[in-house]
Design a protein around this nucleic acid. Sequence first.
DNA 1: GCTGTCGTTGTAGCGTCACTGCATGGACGT
DNA 2: ACGTCCATGCAGTGACGCTACAACGACAGC
Lengths: 306, 306
Amino acid sequence: MDVRALETLRAVRSQGGVTAAAGVLHLTPSAVSQQLAGLTRDAGVALTERVGRGVRLTAAGEALADAAVDVAVALERARTACAVFQDGPTGTVRVAAFQSGAWLLFPRLLTRVAARGGIELRCSDEDVAQRAFAALTDSHDLVVAHRPEDGEPGWGEGVRVVPLLREPLDVALSVDHRWADRASLTPADLADEDWISVRTGFPLARALADVGLRSDTTPRVVQRINDFHVVEALVAAGHGIALLPRFACGGHPGVRLVPLAGARAGRQVDVLVRPDVAERRAVAVVLAELVAVAAEIGGGPGLRPG
Amino acid sequence: MDVRALETLRAVRSQGGVTAAAGVLHLTPSAVSQQLAGLTRDAGVALTERVGRGVRLTAAGEALADAAVDVAVALERARTACAVFQDGPTGTVRVAAFQSGAWLLFPRLLTRVAARGGIELRCSDEDVAQRAFAALTDSHDLVVAHRPEDGEPGWGEGVRVVPLLREPLDVALSVDHRWADRASLTPADLADEDWISVRTGFPLARALADVGLRSDTTPRVVQRINDFHVVEALVAAGHGIALLPRFACGGHPGVRLVPLAGARAGRQVDVLVRPDVAERRAVAVVLAELVAVAAEIGGGPGLRPG
DNA sequence: GCTGTCGTTGTAGCGTCACTGCATGGACGT
DNA sequence: ACGTCCATGCAGTGACGCTACAACGACAGC
């Protein structure tokens, strides 16, 4: 029973298909298929079953994929076991984050990690839908993801979740808006406004719908923009209002953030990491620094990154 | 980091050398050496160091060998994970035991396992010194070993120990001996007798020395025979007396076993199994049957195998 | 001190195995 | 009904690990 094949099986599960798994493994789909065939032969039971034009893991496949994670963890522990006998944690760590999270965290994180020395950070921002965050753990060591705070915390199977911070969502108004000077706003106040939201399937889309539920209305979404800086520009120009995270936004001079009263709106920012990757000392160090950065930001709501 | 190489490192530790490890792995010493070299390159630290004309594991090597056991366990769990989705436990299990243990346990064990079906037993008797028992776990799934009951229970590193039974040691006399009809004997009674013991380094050699200590004498050993049936034949012919285990001996018509009073003498019978091998369902079943057989024997001291 | 032997380490040759590329078959959407 | 996408099977090729052989170092005996 080959470890590479087990890793492949795990990738097929998290990526949801042979071709996608081949992508993150830097292989051809044919190679993945052959590894699965060999693994199935070793296991003696079917591990995948065809569903439509794709494949899905059987119950046995799921169990084996779970076991594959344990194998990977044990292997990584083995690497760590002899790594302590040499120098400190070293190597490159690949970190992915959604844009506003990247804007909020990466500058401080890079500073702190550079100060420690020995670890090279490879940061990248990824604009993916809610369900796609877990799959990023195949190509990145640490994945900073966000979700509605009241949503289920289920990110996916075989992925460890480390909470970073809860970020309140404020109402972003143009400074020329009639309520720009209000200390707070209720859902009822916002019933008849033009809204700028994000694309459906992305974490903050549901947060706005939840706010609408409080006033028994459906928010009138006139634009769907994912990049918050673009949203800010639109809000400043008076093209609508938006729900924006407090820490990551608010720098635009033409935009005012007003807290929401009578409704609890927020997003939860988590770090996703595969258990085996988490065993790497360098990854553990970066994760700890990430938590520290989040504590700094969450502790003082007015803080800016840098 | 290859799992084969990790397994090789573990074998080098338990076998105490490259050539011996190559033997149990069915490889040439050159292949083992190359695997070690590759593993050392991956680890970044020296895993072995030369001592005399052999090698020894460094601290890093020991740590990595420990981790290798965990990897093997995880891999075996993976196999078991999908094995539950097919049929019951199956396969062949290799069991080794010292001679008198084999005589005592194998017949009943074979009967019980055959009654379950699906598992093929490959039994063998091994006459090795105390320290060599642990190394047998590389070539056998289960190893039945024995040791003086008051000795340290340390069998070796990375091996799981399951106690089977404690077996008292009685004094074996010829039926013509002047004390053959005594109900019990004290160490002082035996101070001036000719003894038949086992070869030095074997478990029961120390038990006799301990009995001698109780009477402040050194037992006069006139023969050293490892096979208890040969010992019985010599005792019956009046060539000396011996310390023999109660359950495994006593069938000879010319020999009488007399309990020892005033001194507690016994041997402890254990099963040695590698943690990864213990994960195999078939091995676990056989181990459970072995424990059951031992309970039968230990429960009624007069029982004979069959 | 020299020699014989044992055990580990390096090198050339070879076999095996896994991956690439391409072709095939099935399933969904237009 | 056709095109597209995805998974799978098959031949070719490359790399990797093993065997066989040779060399070096270390211990024991004369």
